[in-house]
Computed example of a mutant assay.
Amino acid sequence: MDVASGAARGHLLRDELLRRGLRLPQLRLLVALQDTGQVSGAAAQMSMTQPAASRLLSELERMVDARLYDRHARGVTLTPAGETLAARAREILYRLDQVQTEIAALTSGVHGLVRIGSVTGPAVDLILPLIRDLRIAYPEIELSVHVDTSDKLGEALLSRDLDFYIGRVMEGVDRRAIRLEPIGPEPVSLIVRNGHPLTRREDITLADCLHYDWIMQEEGGLLRRTARDYLLSHGYEQPKRILSTSSTLLTLAIISETNAIAPIATAASNFYASPSAFGGGIHRLKVAQDMVVDPYSLVLLRDHEASPAMLRVLDLLRQKIRRRYGGDGTLPATGDLIAPAT
């Protein structure tokens, strides 16, 4: 076989699915099926009837010569083959979405959508000032900011629903798929409402705090584990009464209306304690001031092709990290993270 015929055969192999009739609506439908877990839900996302969706999926199964999903009482579950194809389909659709952004950036300057994720502390400490500066430096760049726990942010990054996030990489994530730029540890503070009985006392202790209800993340949450381990390492048991919630808004609302105590990121506690936020109704207790969560990082996908807009945002963000935490990623003293507004 000569080189030319070998290259031609390789080209045919690469185009095999396209030659069999693969169409983009089939890839979109499979991704929608993975997201919804129901043929009817996927059909609704695609604005087609359920019979039409079933027909497209059947054609796709014949095309790849593999069963792509199994039906059950509550909907459908993708098979390993279906999961593999859906992952590749999501990548293809994402890259096609990026084409228009890249073309627009070449013809009319830098603009586009950049999707950022962050845990609570850096969201206040880094992302909030980033948003302010970005509106001045690059007003045409649109930001989407998702604040959540590191496990949820990791899932969103791997499914390419985020461009990058600031947080931690949880157990079970394939480290070969990601890139880390370490930033530093995240201090934690205990907050109460202004006027809480503990705000009228000097030299309070952790033992004093345990007489009150605590508002914490759900079991298994990193912030909850940090508070639990801190109490145990200092010889204290867990609070007897705990309300579990992952909602920062609900936590602040309960704190404002009751005598409960909550551990939250110090950067967030400083912001919420300022007169401009919640009327200055939140108070940070001067106890357990050395409590910190494990270090967090800037987390990116290793194979992600950054758009011009994403590169601009990352450059601004890295500048802020260097200015705020120093070139080695070391955090400043706890009280220096964010000065209360005046």
Rank of each mutant, 00 (worst) to 15 (best):
D2Y: 00
A4T: 12
G6P: 02
A8P: 10
H11T: 15
H11L: 10
L22I: 05
P25W: 05
Q34F: 04
T36L: 05
Q38W: 01
S58M: 03
R62G: 14
R67H: 10
R67L: 11
L68C: 04
D70Y: 01
D70S: 10
H72N: 12
L78F: 02
A86Y: 01
L93N: 10
V99I: 11
T101W: 00
H111G: 15
H111R: 08
G117V: 05
G117M: 02
P122L: 00
V124M: 13
R135L: 13
A137F: 06
Y138M: 08
L143F: 03
D148V: 05
S150R: 03
K152T: 12
L162H: 04
L162Q: 03
E171Q: 13
E171L: 10
A177Q: 15
L180N: 09
G184R: 08
V188N: 02
L206W: 03
D208I: 03
Y212E: 08
M216Q: 11
E219V: 13
S233M: 10
R241T: 15
T245K: 06
T248F: 11
T251S: 11
T251C: 10
A253E: 15
S256P: 06
T266R: 01
A267V: 02
S269F: 01
S269P: 04
G281P: 09
V287C: 10
L300E: 14
L300F: 01
L300V: 03
H304M: 11
A309T: 10
A309G: 14
R312F: 01
L314I: 11
R318I: 00
Q319F: 00
R322K: 09
G329S: 02
L331T: 04
L331C: 00
T342P: 12
T342M: 02
